[in-house]
């Protein structure tokens, strides 16, 4: 009991630490990359190549005035950023970063916990990540914020269905709800090739779930000023910001795990530590892809968003599940 707890605490601590720094430099990476795409230079004043920029941002946000509107629901207004951030971090609990390996004479899995309902856990956590944003919008007691919040939750609920069905295809193909099992099932080939349609659907819905461009309607300045973020400032704003980027990492990790073979790669059986490298590389690649898309595609309209979700992705994913089920039943 106690060693288990200690192990879990150590793992969680490392994980959170990595995520926090990762998030910080992700912001920098995004700004730099977008600048490159747009033939600009990007931040370059704080430290060499602007490497200290995240730190500067943090200090700036920290010293801003922490403002709470008078008619806001104070408790929820304060809690909303946390409610947004926590599920984003919780996702990582079941993601395997590498295979089993021996560290300091202690054999362990590079995964917080390997429950047999891991996939269900992921679905459950994604489904409750709507709350933070909805509540932020409502608690601000501001029309723009409320509309932004409701839009955000509508968007997330709509795309959750197609995303869930894409995951169902994965589960059907691999025959397990255990996340490590899904990774191991990809030894002979990534699911990206076995389930290309599911992978595409998962990627698109994932972008919508984490509200990345071109699905960032929630923050559409022209229509909603800053959406649910309108009334937020200082550290609370920073928390939302952080949640956004953690979700980005989390989604990339999920995509990697489900479709890109997770930590698997050449020689990973001989040098288990390589798994972490592969994993990180794949995640980085996906993040690059997302930034690229952000820099390239314009934001779509709200009705287009709903039509895409309900009339294209959902039927497609349903058809994919059905096809997968037939194939699985025939080959079983």
């Amino acid at each position: 009991m106690v060693p288990f707890l200690v192990e879990a605490i150590i793992k969680s601590a490392i994980l959170v630490l990595l995520l926090l720094t990762g998030f910080a430099y992700l912001t920098l990476a995004e700004r730099k990359l977008v600048a490159d795409f747009q033939a600009r230079i990007g931040p370059n004043r704080a430290g060499p190549y602007g490497l200290l920029q995240p730190l500067a941002d943090a200090v700036k946000l920290f010293f801003k005035e922490d403002f709470i509107p008078e008619y806001a629901d104070r408790a929820l207004f304060v809690l909303a950023p946390l409610i947004t951030l926590i599920p984003a971090i919780l996702i990582f609990a079941v993601i395997p970063f590498g295979p089993e390996l021996t560290l300091f004479g202690y054999r362990t899995r590079l995964q917080l916990t390997d429950v047999n309902v891991g996939v269900l856990y992921i679905v459950a956590i994604t489904s409750i990540s709507v709350y933070g944003i909805t509540l932020a919008g409502w608690a601000s007691n501001n029309k723009y914020a409320l509309l932004g919040g409701i839009r955000a939750s509508a968007q997330m609920i709509s795309y959750e269905l197609a995303m869930g069905l894409a995951i169902v295809s994965v589960v059907l193909t691999t025959g397990t709800l255990q996340v490590s099992g899904i990774v191991e099932a990809q030894r002979n080939g990534w699911l990206l090739f076995l389930q290309p349609l599911a992978a595409i659907i998962f990627f698109i819905t994932g972008l919508a779930e984490i509200k990345r461009a071109p699905f960032d309607l929630v923050e559409a300045e022209q229509e909603l000023t800053a959406g649910y973020l309108t009334e937020y400032s200082s550290m609370k704003f920073a928390l939302f910001f952080m949640a956004e980027y953690v979700k980005m990492i989390g989604f990339s990790a999920l995509m990697t795990t489900f479709f890109l073979g997770g930590y698997l790669g050449p020689f990973v059986d001989h040098y288990p530590a390589l798994g972490v490298v592969y994993f990180t590389l794949k995640v980085a690649l996906l993040i690059f892809l997302m930034i690229w898309i952000r820099a390239t595609l314009p934001r779509i309209r709200y009705d287009q968003l709903m039509a895409l979700g309900w009339k294209v992705l959902l039927p497609l994913s349903l058809a994919n599940v059905m096809g997968t089920a037939v194939v699985v039943a025939l080959t079983a």
């Binding site: 429950v115 047999n116 309902v117 269900l120 856990y121 679905v123 459950a124 956590i125 994604t126 489904s127 409750i128 709507v130 709350y131 909805t134 509540l135 409502w138 409320l146 919040g149 409701i150 939750s153 609920i157 959750e160």
Partner: peptide, 26 residues
């Protein structure tokens, strides 16, 4: 009962109660 627990969160907390919030706010 991990399965039921996850279903409980996904369905109740994730869907049913969001619906409630929606209607209340709307």
């Amino acid at each position: 009962a991990p399965f039921v627990a996850m279903v409980q969160i996904a369905v109740y907390a994730g869907a049913v109660m969001v619906l409630f919030l929606f209607v209340i706010m709307m």
